[in-house]
C-alpha cells in the first residue's frame, strides 16, 4: 500500500505542476511520457526475461490462455453498457466504445475524439486513466476479494506495461506471464474494438 500511495502522490504532484508552474518545454511535450513508457517497458522486459520460471507457466497454459483476454473484453463491454442506463446523455454504443479502451487511454481517447468529438474523447481519457490508477491502488484488495486474476482483468491493456509490476507483486510471479499475454492481446484489440463499435 505504501507504494500505491507514493504513486498517487506522484500523480497529484504532476497535476499541480501542470496547473501552477511554468514547465520547461521538454516536460510539456507529449513525447516525454512516451519515452518514459518505453524505458519502463524495457526494464519490465528485462525483469521478465531474467525470470526463467515464468516461461514454463506459459508452456503449460496452451491455447486456453486466450480465454482470459476474451473474458476481459466481454466483461468490460457488458459492464460499461450496463451502467450507461444511469447516464441518460451517454448512449449504450458510446459507453461500450469507452469501455473498449480497456485502460489504454492514450490511443482510445485519440480514436474516440476523432470519431465522436472532444467531450466523449475526454470522458474516454479520464475513464481509462481511472482504470489504470484504480488497478495500481486497489490491486491488493482486488486479489483479496476477487482472486488473483482480478487485477489482470481490471488492468486491461495496461497489464503488459504500467500495471505489470503491481500485478506481479500482488498476484504472484506465476501470474505475470498471463498478465503480460492478456495485456498484449488487449492492446492489439483496443483500436480494432473502438473502430468496430463506433462505425
Amino acid at each position: 500500500m505504501k507504494g500505491s500511495l507514493t504513486i498517487l502522490c506522484c500523480f497529484i504532484l504532476g497535476v499541480f505542476a501542470g496547473l501552477f508552474f511554468e514547465l520547461p518545454a521538454f516536460a510539456t511535450e507529449s513525447d516525454l511520457s512516451l519515452w518514459v513508457l518505453y524505458a519502463l517497458i524495457f526494464f519490465v522486459g528485462i525483469g521478465i526475461g531474467g525470470d526463467t520460471t515464468t516461461f514454463s507457466v506459459l508452456k503449460k497454459s496452451n491455447v486456453r490462455i486466450f480465454i482470459i483476454p476474451a473474458a476481459v473484453i466481454v466483461g468490460s463491454l457488458a459492464g460499461a453498457a450496463g451502467v450507461s442506463i444511469f447516464l441518460p446523455d451517454v448512449s449504450m454504443k458510446d459507453a461500450m466504445a469507452i469501455g473498449s479502451g480497456l485502460g489504454y487511454y492514450s490511443l482510445s481517447s485519440i480514436y474516440i475524439t476523432e470519431m465522436r468529438g472532444e467531450v466523449l474523447g475526454t470522458i474516454a481519457l479520464l475513464s481509462n486513466i481511472m482504470r489504470e490508477i484504480f488497478t495500481l491502488l486497489a490491486a491488493p484488495l482486488l486479489v483479496a476479494w476477487f482472486g488473483r486474476t482480478a487485477p489482470i482483468a481490471s488492468a486491461g491493456a495496461t497489464a503488459m506495461d504500467t500495471t505489470l509490476p503491481i500485478i506481479t507483486i500482488n498476484s504472484g510471479k506465476e501470474f505475470s506471464i498471463i498478465a503480460l499475454f492478456s495485456g498484449v492481446v488487449l492492446t492489439i484489440a483496443v483500436p480494432i474494438l473502438v473502430t468496430f463499435i463506433l462505425t
Binding site: C10, V15, F16, A17, F20, T28
Partner: peptide, 9 residues
C-alpha cells in the same frame, strides 16, 4: 505517473 499528472494538469 508524475508525467501523466502534468498532462492532465
Amino acid at each position: 505517473l508524475f508525467v501523466l499528472g502534468i498532462s492532465v494538469g
